[in-house]
Design a protein around this nucleic acid. Structure first.
Lengths: 224, 224
DNA sequence: TTCATAATCAAGAAATCTATTGAGTACTTG
DNA sequence: CAAGTACTCAATAGATTTCTTGATTATGAA
């Protein structure tokens, strides 16, 4: 087929290409962007503001992600909207997260410290939610910012951004059961919502994972 | 739960941990090591020789992988043996490969150039092989170096390193059908074996993927 | 004990990556 | 058209990564 030297050269070039993808997820800032983009399309400006990075810096990171093939962009008016290029990109971030969770003790320490009092046993699994949803007794609350809800949410979920939840309490009857979700396993919006709801006499639980995981599992979603 | 600043700090620390894993797969050399380690345990020296890196350099990369939690090591006599720390590490490399294949045109170009004449349609899928194996008419050839076969191989496969295949031809009757596999989709040993077998009047096909993929799929494996 | 081997450590040069700053471009609005 | 906004580009300092070289440690063999 090919000689030894040619083959070594091929391998080197191939691994170099794979490494382009690896390098893309080698920076905390870019990993955070990928997590936010897993919720839906976002502009450079909005990503920069949410993460606290300067606009120029955010732009450079996004360009790096685009050059590694992980995201795509489109220009609309003044803004440039970035989005994940392929579902496989979310799978990659998930694979990275799983390795980190299994192998880095530091993660356990951080999570235990930050989510004091969060009992994993209280979280509702996707199967549980699907079963409850059929019974009609459960209200699913999307606690992410409104624009993320609009970009896509769990079928039948109601937008209830955690900032605005207090004001919406009147519209949430005590007779119902609530399940709150947000961006993913480390997102706190759902936890905060559950806390607030319980403090106000509602029955509420957190969904085990977030919207991107739900969507990746092929479960029903809705876009406005 | 926690205030805004504390939460930002938690996120930063968390993404930093994820990035440790990302950084580990951001180097072509380390990616190659992970692919080799997916075949089974190997010593620093053997990895250095196979990849052409200096011993010190190989050692440093392996230490970096260990510190990121991706591999484990054990000392036996003079040698230190490294191995993948967890099946999730192979899944991570696979996720990276899939993103690269889907998103980087350069990969298609490289593969098309290097594997001239390789028809993907000729490859045998895992299901095909399982069906054929039951009929008993197929011989499965492991074309990797002997020590990789010994570290673990597809159940029922015969070790037939491609270097030694010519000499073994006499023991391979023309009446049988052969399926050759090796390290993975970009490994050429199986292609070379198929070529040699066909040139000598045998019916031979390449298996679609390699041993690590077979094992990850939960299909039957054997260790000596 | 002496020697050889396998691996790691330590130090340094070169390359690469990251964040910042300031300028420049494209587009929208008044 | 002028002003403002969103983004990118270009240049740069500082940090990090990579590879090399030579020394050091640990183990096994003679």
């Amino acid at each position: 087929m090919n000689d030894e030297a040619t083959h070594r050269d091929f391998k080197n070039r191939l691994y170099e290409q794979f490494a382009r993808v690896g390098k893309a997820i080698a920076s905390p800032a870019r990993i955070e962007f990928l997590e936010l983009l897993a919720q839906g399309e976002r502009t450079v400006d909005s990503l920069a503001k949410e993460t606290g990075l300067s606009l120029a810096n955010a732009s450079q990171h996004l360009i790096a992600l685009r050059e590694a093939g992980l995201v795509l962009s489109r220009k609309a008016g003044l803004s440039v909207h970035y989005r994940l290029a392929d579902p496989s990109v979310f799978e990659l971030t998930r694979a990275m997260r799983i390795v980190a969770e299994r192998r880095l003790a530091e993660i356990d320490r951080l999570v235990a410290e930050h989510f004091v009092g969060r009992a994993d046993s209280e979280a509702v699994s996707f199967e549980d939610l699907l079963a409850k949803a059929r019974s009609g007794e459960v209200v699913v609350l999307d606690t992410r910012p409104a624009h993320e809800y609009e970009a896509g949410h769990i079928e039948g979920a109601v937008s209830a951004p955690v900032d605005a939840l207090q004001a919406r309490l009147r519209t949430l009857p005590k007779s119902k059961e609530y399940v709150a979700y947000c961006r993913g396993p480390y997102c706190v919006y759902a936890d905060q919502a559950v806390e607030l709801l319980r403090a106000n006499g509602r029955t509420a639980h957190r969904l085990q994972d977030g919207y991107p995981e739900w969507k990746a599992a092929g479960l029903p979603v809705e876009t406005v």
